[in-house]
Computed example of a mutant assay.
Amino acid sequence: MKDRLYLNTHNPNAAAVAKKIGFGIELDDYVYFNTNIDLDEGKTLFDRCVGLIQGCNKLIFHGAILGTDLKMLAEASTSDIIALYNQSFATAEALGINHIVFHSDYIPGHSNRREWLHRSIALWQEYMSDKPENLYIYIENFVDNDPYIMAELCEKINDKRVMLCLDTGHACSNSNVDVADWISILGSFIGHTHIHNNDGNWDYHWPLGKGILDMEQILHLLEAKTLNTTYTIEADYSLSLEWLLAHGFLGGCDYQIDFQ
């Protein structure tokens, strides 16, 4: 999996480390930021991100999210979501990135399951209707409490450019369904994976070796059940890379990792 591994720019040093070692970069600087890149604040961030990714040809862009208020997320209109996602697409395109992760806006307890599914299928089909053939979207489980609706969504969107991003930490803290079952149910729909660990109660983004998830089992399942999914470490990358090395997931590496 070493050729499919990405580091997340939440840590300011991660991009430099990724480029030094040869991993990819997942740019998440726009998750909570939706300012036009032509405005002063937007241009400052854009220029900084250009510097972060320069020299790396394996790139993923984490699209902006609508917010963290769950009731507001459940009530967001299709036009608001598409406008936000189009802004993320414009930014990613300007940065030369054609892989984008977007959060699912399914909110258990607020969203009507059938209505949400019907609306979301139409939303993604409309969104992708004017997008280039080489754009790939990964819909990430956020507070989803089971994998079934995600599998049905991806199947019925029926667009090879739209896949799922399994977030192991979100599945662990927001669902009573075992993460191994998420992998079995979602299977080949998984195109990208966010890997981190927690205590099952809160989304702590702990490193791979800390928490209740058996990450060794999970990674072996992902390698067996998916079609070469890519991975982003969304945790302390130094501890997580040490864990991956120790457990044989970066086999064949002939370098000594310098985490500084």
Rank of each mutant, 00 (worst) to 15 (best):
M1T: 15
K2M: 11
K2W: 07
Y6R: 00
P12W: 00
K20E: 15
L27E: 01
Y32Q: 11
Y32A: 11
D38P: 03
G42R: 08
K43T: 13
D47R: 10
G51C: 13
C56P: 01
K58V: 04
H62A: 05
H62Q: 13
G63Y: 01
A64D: 00
I65K: 05
M72S: 10
E75T: 15
E75L: 15
D80V: 00
I82S: 00
A83R: 13
Y85T: 08
Y85N: 14
Q87M: 08
A94R: 07
G96L: 10
I107P: 03
H110W: 14
H110R: 08
L117C: 10
L123V: 03
Y136G: 00
I139K: 05
V143T: 15
N145E: 14
Y148M: 07
L153Q: 07
I157W: 07
R161L: 08
M163L: 13
L166A: 03
G169S: 15
N176T: 09
D181C: 10
L186K: 02
G191W: 02
H192T: 07
H194A: 04
I195Y: 02
N197I: 02
N201I: 08
W202Y: 11
D203G: 07
L213Q: 14
E216C: 09
E216T: 14
L222V: 11
K225P: 02
S238C: 04
L239Q: 14
S240T: 13
H247V: 12
D254N: 15
